[in-house]
């Protein structure tokens, strides 16, 4: 695992809990994210990893506890300006072409269209593919386009939920190179790919998180949980 920089937290979760109906998904989560850190969340399905990431992303509010962005609740817009989120879905429009999708997201962020062209090239979508509707893309192409959307506004902080899904090995390595210098929170089952990148790792189980020992190799996926 890499080095951990010590500065004031970008996001701070204190005693965070989340309940869906009567089902407690997260319980008493304490967590903070500092600039330059690359955090890994792993654990079994249904453990609460994605819900936790959505709360860190400011997409979801906790049922209990508090979330502070740059030390206050009002820092959320500043945080959102610097943050990129890639969830389970690609957040693309199936009936727009790849080009139109990125042009739209560029407009939302006040970015020039040249930049979207640059990222389309970087993720390896050729001119022909860019002019096709996303509905007709393969899962891998969609994921590449979603990554272009994610990196379009050059975010300092990346929140990623299973970002390697449907990607081929060589593109995964390229993507890992791109995010190496950023602050990253990553939810994944593919520990062998992401473990060398991480400065801290947490096992999520039954809605609780527990920091795991740093080591050269990732723990077994089916290892003991909290």
């Amino acid at each position: 695992m890499g080095e951990v920089p010590m500065t004031s937290p970008i996001v701070q979760l204190s005693g965070v809990g989340k309940v869906f109906g009567t089902w407690p998904v997260l319980t008493e989560v304490q967590f903070s994210l500092v600039a330059g850190e690359r955090i890994l969340f792993f654990g079994p399905n249904g453990a609460g990893k994605s819900t936790l990431l959505r709360i860190i992303a400011s997409l979801s509010s906790p049922t209990s506890g508090s979330v502070l962005f740059y030390g206050s609740r009002d820092g959320v817009n500043d945080y959102r300006r610097k943050m990129g989120y890639l969830g389970h879905s690609t957040s693309l429009y199936p009936d727009l072409t790849g080009e139109e999708n990125l042009a739209f997201f560029s407009a939302l962020r006040g970015i020039s269209c040249e930049r979207s062209g640059h990222w389309l090239e970087q993720v390896g979508l050729d001119r022909d593919a860019c002019r096709r509707r996303v509905r007709f893309y393969s899962a891998g192409m969609k994921q590449r386009l979603a990554i272009a959307r994610l990196l379009l506004h050059d975010p300092e902080i990346l929140l990623l939920d299973e970002p390697f899904n449907a990607l081929d090995g060589s593109f995964v390595q390229t993507f890992l190179q791109w995010i190496r210098e950023k602050t990253v929170v990553l939810v994944t089952h593919q520990l062998e790919l992401s473990w060398p990148l991480a400065s801290r790792a947490y096992r999520v189980s039954h809605g609780r998180i527990k920091e795991t020992e740093a080591g050269p190799a990732p723990p077994a996926p089916g290892g003991a949980s909290t």
């Binding site: 959102r80 989120y85 879905s89 957040s91 693309l92 199936p94």
Partner: peptide
């Protein structure tokens, strides 16, 4: 409906405005 087809609504919700 067109925003929820592939959760594009998440990208709109995260705009800093």
């Amino acid at each position: 409906q067109r925003e929820s087809a592939d959760q594009a609504i998440e990208a709109l919700s995260l705009l800093p405005l």
